[in-house]
Nucleic acid binder design. Sequence first.
DNA 1: CGATTATTGGAGCAATTAATCTATTTTTTA
DNA 2: TAAAAAATAGATTAATTGCTCCAATAATCG
Lengths: 205, 205
Amino acid sequence: MDAKQPHQLTRKGRATRQRILTIAAAQMFRNGVAGTTTDDLQRVGGISPSQIYHYFGDKKSLVKAVIAVQTESVLRIQGPLLSRLDSFEALEAWRDAIVDLQQARRFEGGCPLGSLAAELADHDAEARADLAAGFARWEAAIRDGLVAMRDRGELSPDADPDALALAMLTAVQGGMLMTQIRHDTVALRTVLDAVIDRIRVHIRA
Amino acid sequence: MDAKQPHQLTRKGRATRQRILTIAAAQMFRNGVAGTTTDDLQRVGGISPSQIYHYFGDKKSLVKAVIAVQTESVLRIQGPLLSRLDSFEALEAWRDAIVDLQQARRFEGGCPLGSLAAELADHDAEARADLAAGFARWEAAIRDGLVAMRDRGELSPDADPDALALAMLTAVQGGMLMTQIRHDTVALRTVLDAVIDRIRVHIRA
DNA sequence: CGATTATTGGAGCAATTAATCTATTTTTTA
DNA sequence: TAAAAAATAGATTAATTGCTCCAATAATCG
C-alpha cells in the first residue's frame, strides 16, 4: 500500500520493518519529522541507513507509514472509550482519559496526529490527505458514540451529533496544543468541558 | 531586549533590522522555522548572512524576535475586534473575521502563533515561555471583552469570563489547525459556534 | 545442498545549513 | 572633513542531511 515493495519480505524482514516504524514513530513524536534523522534512528535503535531505505525507499514514504501507525494507535485508544458513550459520566471519563494522558506525558508532544499535521499539512499534500482521512475516522468514532446515545434515548433527538463531534475533535486539538504551550491541562480541560456542557443540554434525565 | 546589541543602530541599521524581521516572519509563517534558511532570506529579500548575524547573533534570537513580531501582529488585529464585544452580533463578527481570514489564506499556515508553538514548544524553552506569554495576552483580550459585556449588563453575572475566554482561545487554535488539515473552515466555524453558543446562554435580552 | 533472493553493515557522496571571517563601503560624529 | 563606528557583500567552513553503493551475511526454496 504505502511502502516500497521491491521484493518479498521474510519473517525477519517484516520484524525489522516494524521495528523501524515503531522507533521512527516515537522519534518523530518526540522531535518532529524534520528533527528525526537517519543518524537518530541509528543511535536510538541501531538501525542502519540501508535498512531504512531498503524498506521504505525514501523519508517521505517512511513518514506516510508513520502517519498510518499513529492513526491506528489513536483510534485503538479512543475507540473503546467512544463506543461506550452511554452517559454523561462516560463523557467525563473520556475527557479525563485525555487530560490524564497529557499529564502523564508531562505536557510534551501534543496530539500524535495533530503535531504531524501542523508540521506537514502545508508542504506535503499526500501527508495532509492521509491525516485528514485519519481525523475523519476519529471524528466518525465520536459521532457514532453520540448517535448511539441519541438512539438509546439518552440524548434528545434535536442534538446534532455531526456538529458536536466535529466541535469536540477540534476542541481536543486546540486543547492538546495549549497543553504543550502552557505546560498545564487547564485549557484542555476547559475547552472540553465547554463542548461537553453543550452536549449536556441535550441529555435526558 | 531580545536582540544582540553589540553596537548602536543607525537609521539605516534599524530599517534593515526591521526588514529582516518582516521577511523572516513571513517566511517562517509559510515554511516553518526549520524550513527557513539564510539562503531563503537571501533569495526572497536580498538579505546577506552577515546582515542576519550582525543584527540577531544567531537563529534562535531571530526566532525569538519573530515570535514578538507575530504576537504584536495578532494582538493588533484581534484587539479592536475584542474590545468592541458589545453584543451577540459582535461575537459573530469576530468569528467571521477569523473564518474569513483563513479562507483568504486559502487554508494555509494556521495561526501565526500556534504554528510556531507546535514547532518550538518542546525544544526551545525560551520560545515556549514567550509564546505562552503571548497567548496569555490574547486570552486576556478576549476576557476583557467579555467582562466589559458583563459590566454593561449584556451578559448575566453568572457568566464566567475566565473560563469562556480560555475555551474560546483554545477553540480558535484547534479550529485553525483543522483548517490547515481539512482545507475548509467548517471545523473552525463549528467549534467557534459551540463556544459562542455557550456565551449566548448568558446573554440578556 | 546449491542457487536465488532478502537482509544488513558501513563507507561515502552531493547538497544543504548555521555561522564566521575579511574586506569594503557607508554613515555618523567630533 | 577626518576619524571612528556601523553596515554590507560575499567567500568560506565545519557539520549535518538524505540517500546510495557495494560487499558480506542470512534466509528461503526447489
